[in-house]
Amino acid sequence: MGRYLLRRLANYLVLVVVAAALTYFLAGLSLNPRAKFEGRNPPLPASSITKTLDEYNMNPDTPILSRFGHWAEDVVHGDLGKTIEGDDVNDDFGRRVGVSTRLLLLATIVGSLGGIAVGAYGAIRQYRLFDRFSTLASFFVLAMPVFVIGVALKIGATALNDGSQTIKVLGEYDPQYAGQWNFDALVNRAQHMLLPALTLIIMQVALYSRYQRSTMLDVLGSDFLRTARAKGLRRRKALVKHGLRTAILPVVPLLVYNIVLLFTGATFTEKTFGWHGMGELLVDSIQKQDVNSVATVGLFTAVLVLIAGLLSDLLYAALDPRVRVR
C-alpha cells in the first residue's frame, strides 16, 4: 500500500503548492507594504522605502510572478523571507509555533476527552437532565464567536480577581520569568494559561460532544449492541466496550482535523489573551501588510491540512479493521 499512500501524498503536495501560491498571489496583490513605511514619522524618502521593499522582496511594483519566484526559491531552501520589521520570518515562525503548542497541548487533550465523555454520556442519558443541560450549554457555547467567550471570561476574571492578580488575563508569562522553568515560573505560566486554555476547552467540549452524542445515538439502536447484550453483557459494559468503541470511529477524523488546524486557528484566543502564537500572526501580519508572514501562515495552514488528512486517515485505519488495507 506504500505506493498508494505515496500517490495520495503527491496529490496532497500539489494541493499545498497551489494553495500556497494562490495565497502568495492574493497577499502580494492585495496588501500594500509601502503604506506601512509611508506612514512613518519622520517620513522616509521614497527611494529608501523602495530599497527596503526590494530588499524584503515586497515591492508592489515588482511583477508578482517575479516576486513569487524569488520567494518560492527561498522557501525551497528553507528561508521564509523577512518580516516587514526586517527580522527573519523563520525565527518568528519557530517562536510562535512553540507558543501555540504550549497553549494547545493541554487544552486539546482535555477538550477532546471531555467532549467525547460528555457526548457519549449525554447520548446514553438521552433527554434526561444531564443530556438536556449539556445540550443546552453546548448550543449556547456554539452560538458564540470565540472572541465573545474570551472577552466574557476576561470580564469575569477581572471581577473575580477583585484587584488582585490571581488570574492573569494577558500574555504567556510575566516578563521577570522569561526563560525560567522553576516552580514560581510554572505557577506564573499556569496563572496565564488558565483563561485561554479554558476558552479552548469550552469550545472543543461543546463541539465534539455534539458529534459524539449523535454517533453514539446511532450506535445505541444497532444490532450488534443488542447482540452484545444478548450474550449476557451488562448494559454499561456493552455500551462502553461495543457501543462507544464503535461510535468513536467517525469522530476521530473530525477530532484530528480540528486539533491540527487549531495551530493556526486559535486566532481569537491568542489575540484576546495576548499570546504571540501562530494564530495571532495571522491577524497581525495582515494588519501590518507583512506579505511574507501572510504567505508563511498560508503555507503553514496548507501543510497542516495535509498532515491532518494523512493523520486522520492513518488513525482511522488503525482503529477500524474494515478499512485496513492488507
Binding site: D223, F224, T227, A230, G232, R245, P321
Partner: peptide, 21 residues
C-alpha cells in the same frame, strides 16, 4: 446472567449483528 447462558439468541442480519471492530 440468563442471556447468553440459558437463552441463546440468533438474529436476522448477521452483518450488523456482529461488532465490526
Amino acid at each position: 446472567k440468563i442471556r447468553g447462558k440459558d437463552i441463546g439468541m440468533v438474529f436476522q442480519d448477521p452483518l450488523s449483528a456482529l461488532t465490526p471492530v
